[in-house]
């Protein structure tokens, strides 16, 4: 691991208030992500995994605490700069794929590039961007589905399209929220292999939230969230992770 983490969160606190109820989701979460690392985050439902991912990816802002990207604080940036970060630095993959139903596979993959470019810039770079999108789609194995709409794809194909979309702007960090949560074992394995390949061959930093302990074997590091905090390393060795380790 490098001395300066690529992404680091300090004392993250986040609570959701609905009417008189205050639900504290994150309670002083601290986490560092090194460049090129494939980090998996596990934990029970409601432990704050997805909330942490949203905060790291600037989709939301913490109530307290800070987030730094290569030493630059990003949690308090103006919304325009946070939009740019989500567009160029972070890539998102969701459990339910979240493809835009009105667009074809190719258009979905190109969507972040379209957001990045103005109309003129788009027309100017259109050829190049299309080539990049086609290459990305080929890499995820969806070349035969270019013009298909999301509703015409299987779950695995949709997730692969979502991965291609997340990568089109060449982000530095991929934030994956239970990417295999809605897939069968074979498709889940396929997606996992793809992520592993992206991490190993392209040096992409990946933070993956998962419930599937089988998958964490393929990651560099695992952290467990309990009640909005990262579990201490000693406890990490306790079952069920110990069982996972024993199995390997």
């Amino acid at each position: 691991m490098n001395a300066t983490p690529l992404l680091s969160a300090t004392n993250l606190q986040k609570a959701y208030v609905k009417f008189a109820n205050r639900i504290e989701v994150l309670r002083g979460l601290e986490i560092d992500v090194a460049e090129g690392e494939f980090l998996s985050v596990i934990g029970n439902s409601g432990s704050g995994k997805s909330t942490m991912l949203h905060l790291l990816g600037t989709l939301d802002q913490p109530d307290e605490g800070t987030i730094h990207l290569e030493g630059r604080r990003i949690d308090n940036l103006p919304s325009q700069e946070r939009d740019e970060l989500r567009n160029r630095t972070f890539g998102f993959i969701f459990q339910f794929y979240h493809l835009l139903p009105e667009l074809s596979v190719l258009e979905n993959v190109l969507a972040p590039a379209m957001i990045q470019h103005s109309v003129w810039s788009w027309w100017w770079n259109s050829g190049e961007l299309h080539e990049a999108a086609l290459a990305m789609i080929e890499r995820v194995g969806l070349s035969h589905r270019l013009t298909h709409r999301p509703q015409e794809l299987s779950g695995g194909e949709m997730q692969r399209a979502a991965i291609a979309r997340a990568l089109i702007n060449r982000p530095r960090i991929l934030l994956a929220d239970e990417p295999t949560g809605n897939l069968d074992a074979a498709n889940g394995q396929h997606v996992m292999q793809l992520l592993r390949s992206l991490n190993e061959h392209d040096g992409l930093t990946i933070v993956m939230v998962t419930h599937n302990l089988e998958l964490v074997r393929d990651t560099d590091r695992v952290v467990r969230l309990i009640d909005g905090r990262v579990e201490t390393p000693e406890k990490m060795l306790a079952p069920p992770l110990a069982e996972v380790g024993a199995a390997t």
Binding site: H98, L100, A111, I115
Partner: peptide, 16 residues
Amino acid sequence: TRDIGILKALGASSGG
């Protein structure tokens, strides 16, 4: 609403 969330996650601004 969900599509709006997706677009924002992909970097679309509120103005956009």
